[in-house]
Structures are given as structure tokens and as C-alpha cells.
Design a protein around this nucleic acid. Structure first.
Lengths: 348, 348
DNA sequence: CTGAAAGCGCTTACAG
DNA sequence: CTGAAAGCGCTTACAG
């Protein structure tokens, strides 16, 4: 591949001048500029970003470590992150932790070794050493998105689902459900514990208990949703309704319910945290709590770039909302509410 | 961040020696090695991959340019690519073309500027300049995955769906469907044209025509599936069955069918190319053609790494298979066939 | 077994 | 307006 030297000699100038032209430095004579540009074109020259990064100490790349790429929520998040980053002149390098702390650490380490300018992370567990260390030392600017780690001085861009969870409980209660179970995410993740806590709180407001056997421990992946659901259905008094705290565990729950020849909502009601286009077409359509995922990703990138470019970044909390469909039982109108942009959402 | 110089002075050796220890060069005295390692640990030193890349002319990173991250098929592909790459000691940098040739070119250019060691691409259209140029010049090793561009000397790792499409047509014919339409992908993509051609061929074997108005032009994204389906349903003689050549266009088709208050398969039968976990839970479960996606990604990485490391890479063609569910009508047994690993698939 | 030195491809203060 | 030179953080032939 042609280097800056080749361009310089072809244009009859020094590499410094070529560099100035490439970086749009104003102090270059127009004729010189033209000559350099011609040389660039005829050689098909492209600057070596690796060399440039070494020299300037910036890569114009952002790292994004997500818990699970196969989870449509994170896929959509990754997509909005990339869109916003590109708009601001950054590339993004994604690392998929697959809900494994060790893999998460591997990615954080690799990204830092590659000297990304900033790191966006949705931590898989509470205490990954690399992440804590990075946050403490402050070498690489970091922002948490969706999930975060308490006690670290890192901006957090996330969704508050408390009100939506309360709406969900009101909905379940109105439909007559009293024995209600929850499939929890890892307790060490904030989203894992918060969603269960909000749920417990809301149940309490209706005088409903959340007994230990109605709290199943999942890991945000489908297999765990299936396993936990099997446990619930094996109970002497199985729950009338199940709340899966993410969409993949809801998928696992549906797998198990279907395998047993049971039906939703007749035999068990089901609701999920995180809305995805397919929930509109499942049998029955799934009632879910929708996050403003696109805005979440964009706000996270903005916060991170603020930090990178020396501005102060602020945490952002967005609000989730309940989308009622039919998986918890028939409501009065039987239709879908609280959701005005279904077509747009599922038609991207 | 500590550099190799800091380590050298702390250990009382030259940077050359530190480098040798880091690269496990055998000719280092054990005591020296220990001293260097201690310095590395106490400083929390991590080698700068940017500098190393500049010096060694390799980044140990692979580029993956996919057509659409929001498509679960590509998400799964990306995941298997990353897994295999990591196993072979490479990172992967993903670029999402969003089915836009211009965006695809942007990513290819950016990845090449960053000097990735090799490029895996599933081309969005037929003639993207950057891709053709890269293939011709051979500067960066390249392998096509899923889709490819004819006439270029680039290994192709893909799935042959011809037999599965023929099985699908046999299935539709056995169920009594005669007026059968197809939602095509972009004609400039190989998967776009091949799937339609295989379908037309198979219909021909049953003496069924594929009239022009039964071929709708989509772009592999949901909105186009919806638009094309609307067109089909507005025909004086609408089709009895629709074959969507990817899962997102099937989603769009379901959106439109549902919006009109019609039902699958009673009013229209529906089948899709690409199988995804949700197809098991839709109303009704969707008959689909499944690709061995994981193996596709792994084989593509192996081929690319073969090229990068100077071995000869060979093209690979895997085989798709039909998974019969209920979206085309009831079969004798009413169940699912040709599919042994449903639980595993949807439970990852 | 170890070190001094060159060099990868850039950018940028410093001179002129 | 332009060039010579230093230097970013590494690796690696070359000496010793």
C-alpha cells in the first residue's frame, strides 16, 4: 500500500506538506495542494490510521462491551450506538460478553490495548476487575449504559422502569392475577436486581406477596428462562402469571410453556421487560415494557464523547413504558394500548 | 499509561529485553525474565497494540461488513464469527451496512484504513467500488460470506438453499396452494436473485407459473416486506401463499396481514427463508428454511485466516433445510418436522 | 543472553 | 508557505 512518502515524492513535496494537505491545514499554497491531491488520487493513497493513531494518541474508535449480542435489545442498542458514533466521527468496536464476566474482561482488556478513545459498557456482573480498575484509574473515559456498577464515578445512561413495572402490576391485578412470579436476572447486575425490586414493591402496594419460590434466578439468557419456568410449573401451587425480566427469558418461558402443551394466558399469563418487534406476532402477542432503546444508545455515545473531548458528561435516565397486548388476559378492548408507533418500530 | 520504557527502566534492562520477554522470545535469562515480569505487574503495563501493529504490519483484527445487524440471521453470523476469530487469536470489528451500498463502502474504507488483517463481507449490492477494488488489488485478504459478487477471485462461504426451496414448493403444492408469490431481495445480491430463481425453477417442476405480479421487489428489510405484501393482497387475484426470502420481510408480511385482520394460513400461507427462534412462537409457527448459521460464520473465519496466514483458502457451500411448521396449512401430523434441535437453538 | 539502533507511517513544533 | 527533524511505542536484525 502506498505510504505518505510515495505521495510526497510523486508530488515533489515533503511528507510534511502532504500531511498538511491531508489534514486540511490552511497554510498550503493552492497549487501545491492540487499537486498533492493529484498524487493521492493517482496512487489511490489512503492514510494509515494505525500510524496516525500512534502519533496523535487518539484512535477515533469507541469500544462497546455488551452483555449479549443475540439479545435483540442489545442489538438495537449497538446499532444506535454505531449510528450516533459515526455521526460524530467515531467508529465503534463491539465486544460481546455473552453474560460471562471473564469474556467481558477479555474484551475490555483488548479494547484498552487497542487504545480506543472511550468505552461504553453494560456490565455483565457487579465486580469485574478490569472495569473497576479502568473506572478508578480514569485512563480511558468510560460510560455505563443500561446496566451500571454502583460506587464508581462513571456516568450512567439508563432507563428507569419503575413506573412501567407498577403499571404492569396494576394490569395483572386488574385481570385478577394474584399468584405472580418473576424470572430475575443476575442479582449482581443492576437491571437484574432493580426490576425485581420494583416488581416486589408494586406487588406490595396491592398487598400481594412475592414468596421466595416465586422468584426464579435466571441469567438473562433463554435457557435460564426455560429452566426457571419449569420450576414454577412444577410447584404445588404454580403462579398464575410470570414476569420475565428480559425478552430472551420470556422466549425460554414460552418454549417451556409450549413444550408442556399449556397456553398463554389461559394457563399462565406472561409479560416481559424489553419489547421487540416479534412480540406483536407471538401467540398471543406479548405484553411488554418498552425501553427507548435508540435514544438510550445515542445519549450514551453523546455522554462518552463529551468525556473524551473534555466536556463534562452527565448521567441520563430515560423512562420505560408498558405496552399492553394479550399475554396476560383479555382487557376490555382486547387491543393494544400505550403504543403509537408499532408499525414504525417493527418495520425498520 | 506506562510504556515499555517505563518497564525497562524499572527492571533495569533495555526495551529490547522487555519486548523479548513480552513476546516469549526464548533467549532471555530466567532471572531477567522474572525481573521484567515483576516490573510489568507493578506498573500494570499493557503493550500498546497500536504501536505493535505499526511495527509488525499486522493488527490481529478482522473486519466483518454485514448487510443488517438488526437481522437475527446476521446477528447470529456475527456472533459465530467473533467466537471463531477469538479462538484463533483475532478480534473482529463489525460494520453494519444497513443494506446501503454507500454505508457499506464507508465501512470497507474505514476498516482498510485501520489496516485490519482481513475482511469478511456479505455484500449489500452487486457493484460496490471499494469491494471490487479491494478484491482486484488483493491488498487486504477478503472472503465473502452468505452473499457474494460473481466474477471476483474471492473465496465464498455460503449456503445452498436450492434443495430446501424445492422441498418448500413440494410442501406448498401438497397443501393445495397453486397461486404462490415471492418477496424477493435486491436483485443485485446473489441471495436476492438465487432464492427467487430456485423458487421459480421448483414451481416450474410442478407446472406452476410465477407471474410478474407475484414477484415483489423487497430489500431484505421489514418495511419492504410489508409494502410488497400489501401489493399482493390488493391484487384482483391475490396469492394463496407468500414466500418471503428473509426473516425480516416475513415480519413485515405478518405486520401487513395482521393489520388487515387476515389470518395465516387460512387467508394466506407464509413461509420464510432463514429460521429464527421466534418462528416457533408466532401465530402460527412459521415454516422456514434454516441455514447452518454458526457453521457458516466459523467456516468463513477459517477461510479468511487461511488466506491471511498464507495458506490457500477454499470456498465452502453448506446446505439449508426446510423446517415445516404450520404457517402454510395443516400437514398430516400437524407438528414440526426436519428439526431435531429446536430446544437447543432457541435456548442459547 | 543483552543492548544500541533503525524503522514502521504518520504529525507537528520549529526554522526559515 | 514549506521542509528537516523529532518522536509516538513498539520489534528485530545486528553486534558483541
Amino acid at each position: 500500500m502506498a505510504s505518505i512518502k510515495d505521495v510526497a515524492s510523486r508530488a515533489g513535496v515533503s511528507v510534511a506538506t502532504v500531511s498538511r494537505v491531508l489534514n486540511e491545514h490552511p497554510a498550503v499554497r493552492p497549487e501545491t495542494r492540487t499537486r498533492v491531491l493529484a498524487a493521492v488520487a493517482s496512487l489511490g493513497y489512503r492514510p494509515n490510521a494505525v500510524a496516525r493513531s500512534l502519533r496523535t494518541d487518539q484512535t477515533r474508535a469507541l469500544g462497546l462491551v455488551i452483555s449479549d449480542v443475540l439479545n435483540p435489545f442489545f442489538t438495537e442498542l449497538a446499532r444506535s450506538v454505531e449510528d450516533e458514533a459515526r455521526a460524530l466521527g467515531y467508529s465503534v468496536v463491539i465486544g460481546n460478553a455473552d453474560e460471562q464476566p471473564a469474556l467481558q474482561d477479555h474484551h475490555v482488556r483488548t479494547l484498552i490495548d487497542r487504545r480506543i478513545d472511550g468505552l461504553l459498557v453494560s456490565p455483565t456482573d457487579g465486580g469485574s476487575p478490569m472495569i473497576t480498575e479502568t473506572a478508578r484509574e480514569g485512563g480511558t473515559p468510560m460510560v455505563f449504559v443500561d446496566r451500571w456498577i454502583p460506587g464508581l464515578d462513571v456516568p450512567v445512561v439508563r432507563t428507569d422502569g419503575t413506573a412501567a413495572v407498577r403499571d404492569l402490576v396494576a394490569h395483572l391485578h386488574a385481570l385478577g392475577h394474584r399468584r405472580i412470579a418473576v424470572i430475575a436476572g443476575p442479582a449482581a447486575t443492576t437491571t437484574g436486581s432493580e426490576r425485581v425490586e420494583a416488581f416486589r414493591q408494586a406487588l406490595g402496594e396491592y398487598g400481594l406477596p412475592l414468596p421466595r419460590e416465586y422468584v426464579g434466578q435466571g441469567d438473562f439468557q433463554a435457557a435460564s428462562g426455560r429452566r426457571v419456568t419449569a420450576g414454577f410449573l412444577d410447584l404445588a401451587r404454580p403462579p398464575e402469571a410470570i414476569f420475565a425480566t428480559d425478552n430472551l427469558m420470556a422466549l425460554g418461558a414460552m418454549d417451556e410453556i409450549r413444550a408442556r402443551g399449556l397456553r398463554v394466558p389461559d394457563d399462565v399469563a406472561l409479560a416481559a421487560f424489553d419489547d421487540i418487534p416479534w412480540f406483536l406476532h407471538t401467540a398471543p402477542p406479548v405484553t411488554a415494557i418498552a425501553q427507548p432503546t435508540g435514544e438510550l444508545g445515542r445519549a450514551a455515545v453523546r455522554a462518552l464523547v463529551d468525556r473524551i473531548e473534555g466536556r463534562t458528561a452527565h448521567s441520563v435516565t430515560l423512562t420505560a413504558r408498558l405496552v399492553v397486548r394479550r399475554s396476560c388476559g383479555e382487557t376490555g378492548d382486547g387491543g393494544e394500548t400505550g403504543h403509537t408507533d408499532e408499525t414504525e418500530r417493527s418495520s425498520r
